[in-house]
Design a protein around this nucleic acid. Structure first.
Lengths: 219, 219
DNA sequence: GCTGTATTTGACTAACTGGTCAATTAGGTG
DNA sequence: CACCTAATTGACCAGTTAGTCAAATACAGC
């Protein structure tokens, strides 16, 4: 039987993969360095050799996660002529990305709980602009040109809006269930929620507005 | 100097108060029983005397938090004739409640990370209907009657929608800042965001819709 | 094949963690 | 005042935790 010969790259990746799983499952404080080492079938010293400390490892996990997510966003292109359809695809893509990568929500929640303490220490993550915002801007532009969207909609605000609704639905499903008595985990309810987010976004973007709604301020 | 004579009620409350602060600041796994005892200036045994275990204490904290929040929601009544104005008040109330009680977000996030493990064990919290939903229903009804809102809007869906946006804005402000490079903590940006949520809600509820937006399904 | 360097490991530790025990103290009640 | 019960405490423990040390091992270049 071939003893696993040394292979720094593979080892590093394996640690990163298992650490992501552990940190996502148990959050920063709940995660155990020994447990990660056991998952990797490596001695704990390897983690310290490559990442210095538990915090260093967590930062590397965050960076890796952000890069993966960003790449996925960049690879997505809302094609097709219809801006309304493109906007729906955009929302669906965001929702699906979060469903496909539950570790993203877990890691971000853990990080926000610590007031972004680790992200602040990472130079690679700071001011990492989400490429999806550019796609939104483009779709909005086309929609305005075609007369289906109203002008002067901020793409960042719109992005935060629908990603909030997608994220929160998944992230807080357990306490929402406890408070409202509704199971948000079923496929059908998810589909309905995705449609609802799109509906809200499109109602907000629609051009055929007149009276009092958007742009107005209350006292 | 008067040695603190025994007072079970006050002691219980003090433990609950300090435990809430500790669990909110450090989440369930990060919180330390010894630290809570130290905050209370009580021997650790008191926590075990009154709440049995760290988990029992956390459950009590969750229950207490829910009751407080629910009471606040119930006390709120969106008065006034104008349903549009009332809806804005409703959104503002929700946003402000989360700003006033940051521990709510911290505790709920911690609990969702554990897939609602503790909330499931609490009989007092299960299926605790949020009273604000009733207020929303009533405002929607009035709006439909006055012809400013369209009919058949689900109050629960609407509640989850705007509370998502309010909650997420506060909860994820640190990672949003890291990813988008925008400080979401300033008073002005908060005001703008509150207005934006209201705008979206009202655009969604508005009666004067015709063509394709709400209710439509994509493939 | 020799040697230097990077990879990998087993054994260890000092501090901490949730939880327990037996003992002490204060208040209400007869 | 004596007695019972509930509140409160100091001392302690077994298991765990992030992090360390020195040694061993494999690979690359000569």
């Amino acid at each position: 039987m071939r003893r696993k010969s040394r292979n720094p790259e593979r080892t590093r990746e394996k640690i990163l993969r298992e650490a992501t799983a552990e940190f996502a499952a148990r959050s920063y404080d709940g995660a155990r360095v020994d447990s990660i080492a056991r998952r990797c079938r490596l001695s704990k010293n390897m983690l310290y050799h490559y990442f210095g400390s538990k915090e260093g490892l967590f930062i590397a996990v965050l960076e890796h996660m952000y890069e993966m997510f960003r790449k996925r966003q960049r690879d997505f292109a809302a094609r097709g002529g219809d801006p309304v359809k493109a906007m729906r695809q955009l929302v669906a893509h965001t929702f699906q990305a979060l469903l496909d990568h539950p570790e993203v929500i877990a890691l971000l929640n853990s990080e926000n709980l610590h007031h972004g303490r680790h992200i602040k220490r990472s130079r690679r993550v700071r001011n990492l602009y989400d490429p999806l915002v550019d796609t939104i801007r483009e779709v909005l532009r086309r929609g305005v040109a075609e007369g289906v969207f109203r002008p002067n909609i901020d793409p960042v605000t719109l992005y935060v809006s629908f990603s909030s609704m997608a994220y929160h639905y998944i992230s807080n499903q357990y306490t929402l269930r406890a408070i409202l008595g509704v199971d948000f985990g079923t496929a059908e309810r998810r589909r309905a929620w995705l449609n609802h987010i799109s509906d809200m976004v499109l109602a907000y973007c629609a051009a055929d507005r007149a009276a009092e709604a958007p742009g107005q301020r209350s006292a």
